[in-house]
Nucleic acid binder design. Structure first.
Lengths: 314, 314
DNA sequence: TATCCTTACGGAATTCGTAAGCATG
DNA sequence: CATGCTTACGAATTCCGTAAGGATA
């Protein structure tokens, strides 16, 4: 048994059981992959994959258990590399952060700058994508850290930490009627809001769930005329007068700089919690731990390690 | 990097850094081992072993961290084999139990018999040894299960379960003066006991610690004239009139069958708890779980797995 | 000087890719 | 009939053990 064989199996399950694709990813030939897999199956005396004729179609019941062990084993193999790099020089390396636009644009700059100062030789890769994809990137080891407000807490193989709480704010252009409320020291109601076309985040992004929930619970119909991934884009259309924007509070400074007005909305929508996640069982290089602590100073080294080395539950 | 290289490193640390010995254990040549180790060190770019000239003398600081990861990795490799065997046929295999004489002789027979009935095709290996060695056997993967009253709870890489409680009893030959107490419904005191030569377990065995503690706390001097590993041997010398025996309550039936008399002593010595231990992170084959439940029926499948897959803690 | 590790070398075994063959949707 | 897996074969590489060399307690 060797590592390449195990990698072939892991990749096969990741690639939807297409061995040709596996071969490309692992930079080898397809017959090679085919052989690697059969060799392991023979050595272990277990059929890992379901086959339909010659094609692989899924995992067998034993295969699922075996795959779990293989994944843990390969994580340790990666840990070996990570730990070694860390020991060799813990001021060098690459920190890969998978996150959403909102974090990358409004929250991380301050943290990244401080981190950069502490570890000038560490390269930083920001991978922007959707919350589900962020989880995937962390689970597959392609990113060290995932940061998002949605979808990081439901994976048993991710250790996630609550980092900070934020709420939504409304954005309107100069002279918008809603600003009258503010002038009178009145709070905007959901009913008020429902009379305007709205512009906010895509489903699954940046607390969008809480916005939909609020309208559902309040029995109002939201007229969401446009959605986008980030506050900058939303603000652009708000400025054009296309509607009232609902964005994350982290963006207010930038919005005001663009001449837009913001109106408190924390009484309308539930607060959101941004979480940071790492894969359980992963060796955290010193600078990764440092970054986590920069981002969420209340976390202790021990607390982080305890959570990350904890079993995946179940 | 391959498994043989990692095994060489693990074994080197286990063999006190004697590569010749490692070569023998791994059935290979000494230059081979030497090379395997250097190859890993080169590939990872980390010196794992301290060297004094050409000889290996210990682990470097990074080496300690690296070794931990290697050990977890190799445990997963063994798990792969174990899980496969289990899936292939979970009624076959070998269950290796490291335990003390007391357990093997007085407690396990009932359990082993029941287990044998449930899994007639599983071979059972009972490895009798001292409590410390039992822990070693389990930690190194040479035994699936360790059972003992002492020394299993202090290893962070062992998950141990309290199974049952027992106390010590006194053993005397027919007509011994201490039997007068019993006849008068009196409890034997530590002071009474201190007037007799005593025969009991070796230090470190079968609750011996609690016996010594009791005398220390009670301010009495125990005159332990002979020690042995097991109740049978102790009983033999008691029968010869060499002294009063103090043995585990599990042995009473056998002692009476030999014509000796037993006297309650649970008021004199703290009760003892027999524990069962398995290495954390180890895949437990179905029959191993079954055996554990036979031995300690109050444990649930989930409880066992939770404890075994839990992280080793700091 | 005996033990223990390293270096050097050559044969053996393994590994892997290419090319051809075959099944399936 | 195109996609995808298997088989077959040969070349290249890797692996590993033996033998000799050198350092240290």
């Amino acid at each position: 048994m060797n590592f390449q064989q195990l990698r072939s199996i892991r990749e096969a399950s990741r690639c939807g059981f297409n061995l040709t694709e596996v071969a490309n990813i692992l930079y080898t030939s397809q017959p090679g992959v085919s052989r690697q897999i059969r060799e392991v199956e023979e050595e272990l005396g277990v059929e890992i994959f379901e086959r339909n004729g010659k094609r692989l179609t899924g995992l067998t019941e034993p295969g699922k258990g075996i795959l779990q062990i293989i994944e843990r084993l390969l994580v340790e193999a990666e840990n070996l590399q990570r730990a070694s790099d860390d020991y060799a020089d813990h001021t060098k390396g690459t920190l890969t952060i998978a996150t959403t636009h909102t974090q990358a644009r409004y929250v991380l700059p301050r943290v990244v700058q401080a981190f950069r100062h502490a570890f000038p030789e560490v390269r930083i890769a920001l991978q922007q994508s959707s919350p589900e994809h962020i989880a995937d990137l962390v689970l597959s080891g392609k990113a060290d850290i995932g940061i998002a407000t949605e979808g990081l807490s439901q994976y048993k193989d991710l250790a996630s930490f609550a980092c900070y709480e934020w709420s939504h704010v409304l954005v309107v252009p100069e002279g918008h009627p809603l600003l009258a409320c503010v002038a009178n020291n009145e709070l905007v109601t959901l009913k008020d809001l429902a009379t305007w076309p709205l512009i906010t985040y895509d489903v699954g992004f940046t607390g969008r769930g809480h916005i939909d929930d609020a309208f559902k619970v309040g029995g109002e119909q939201a007229d969401i005329v446009l959605t986008a991934m980030d506050a900058d884009v939303i603000a652009q259309y708000v400025a054009l007068g296309m509607g009232v924007g609902i964005v994350a509070s982290m963006a207010v400074d930038s919005l005001r700089a663009h001449g837009l007005h913001t109106i408190a909305a924390s009484h309308l929508f539930s607060p959101n919690v941004t979480r940071l996640a790492v894969r359980r069982g992963t060796y955290l290089r010193s600078f990764v731990i440092d970054f986590i602590q920069q981002f969420s100073p209340s976390l202790s080294h021990q607390e982080i390690n305890r959570e990350v080395t904890a079993a995946s539950g179940k």
